[in-house]
Design a protein around this nucleic acid. Structure first.
Lengths: 202, 202
DNA sequence: AGATTTCTGTATCGATCGATGCGGAACTCG
DNA sequence: CGAGTTCCGCATCGATCGATACAGAAATCT
């Protein structure tokens, strides 16, 4: 027999916060921060607005947590890509991961970090700036990885890590826009392959 | 002396529709379709909601006309770029025009055709699809131009016009996202130069 | 058991959304 | 001039926005 764990006092939650957050992330991904209404979010999460506010604070806090989940979930390919042994491997993995994630059937097309709030009203400025910082942080991490590649001799000494990182992330962001426009996975992957055929940029 | 033109009967408009549309376009550009409220739009246009509805129909129609104005105004560089004599000239002009237009001081950063409505709620689906078609149309026109370059011998016979067009437009869309994130003009132009240094893609 | 704490469902808040009704103002006609 | 037509300012519409108040339900504590 197992001893009953003494849980926190009071009535326990009637839902799984992780799964509710996953559902919310998908709604934000598909409709954007301002395009996702509380009614639609809570309906997808399977809880009432009261429970949502008690568990996540408010709509903006819910989005911040959904973005964290997105980063560690659908967007985790970035962290894995940065661990590739060569700079070319890093770039290739980033673009392949972007293509795969933004064109998954049965998932929203595009990237939450881009279409979550590229432009917004005043009330969405906080989230818009958060996402801009999220994207710039991604570019910075790639640049630092390429700088390490230069230091290690993997990239030639005259290579510009900042320029290469900007190139790769610009392609990645462009891919997310193309995916949101309905462009197919194979065509984007072919383009990504061609874009890295002259690495590291003459 | 000049004969007085017999204008339309009734009280004449108290505002210039072209300038009002220009103001509306700037608001849509900065805040997106759903992020731009009627109150903010009409305030910027300097007219009342009644006048706006009488002159433009409704919010969605106003956006459609604002997008037309954007296409013939800030985005006119695309049409001019397609008239460049060489495919490389076309690609170079597209990216330079994108960088310039999306990073103009005293103008909204980014591109109306991208951040106008990448993701939206149900009520914004019409505009979202309109913009997706707008972007895909842009890519198609570039592809047709590159096809002509192949036919004319400007591009090698084995060049893939569709892939090249996808490459250039993906870079352009990526640039608009970077610009919306606050990345500076010079850095983006350097990246664009490097991206075309190996034209037409090995 | 009773007391205490926490979660949930309903009902609703004030604000804002896009969109209109209405009466008076401003113009061209005859 | 008066009649006819159009435009504009004000007030307001029903719907929806994000966010809460309140009371009852469900758990752990002593």
């Amino acid at each position: 027999m197992r001893t009953k764990q003494s849980g926190p006092i009071g009535r326990p939650r009637g839902f799984d916060p992780g799964e509710a957050l996953e559902r919310a992330m998908l709604v934000f991904w598909e409709h954007g921060y301002e395009g996702a209404s509380l009614a639609r979010l809570t309906d997808a999460m399977g809880i009432s607005t009261t429970s949502m506010y008690a568990a996540f604070g408010n709509k903006e806090e819910l989005f911040r947590k959904a973005l964290e989940r997105y980063t560690e979930g659908p967007s985790a390919y970035l962290a894995r890509a940065l661990e590739q042994p060569t700079a070319l491997g890093v770039a290739t993995a980033i673009l392949a991961g972007t293509v795969r994630t933004t064109t998954r059937p049965a998932h929203p097309h595009g990237c939450l970090g881009v279409q979550g709030a590229l432009a917004a009203s005043d009330s969405g400025r906080g989230v818009r700036d958060l996402l801009a910082a999220w994207r710039n942080d991604g570019c910075s991490r790639v640049r630092e990885r390429f700088q390490r590649a230069v230091d290690d001799g993997d990239l030639p000494p005259d290579a510009d890590p900042g320029l290469l990182a900007r190139y790769v992330t610009t392609l990645a962001f462009g891919i997310t826009v193309q995916a949101a426009s309905g462009v197919g996975r194979d065509e984007l992957q072919e383009m990504a392959d061609a874009a890295l055929r002259n690495w590291p940029l003459p």
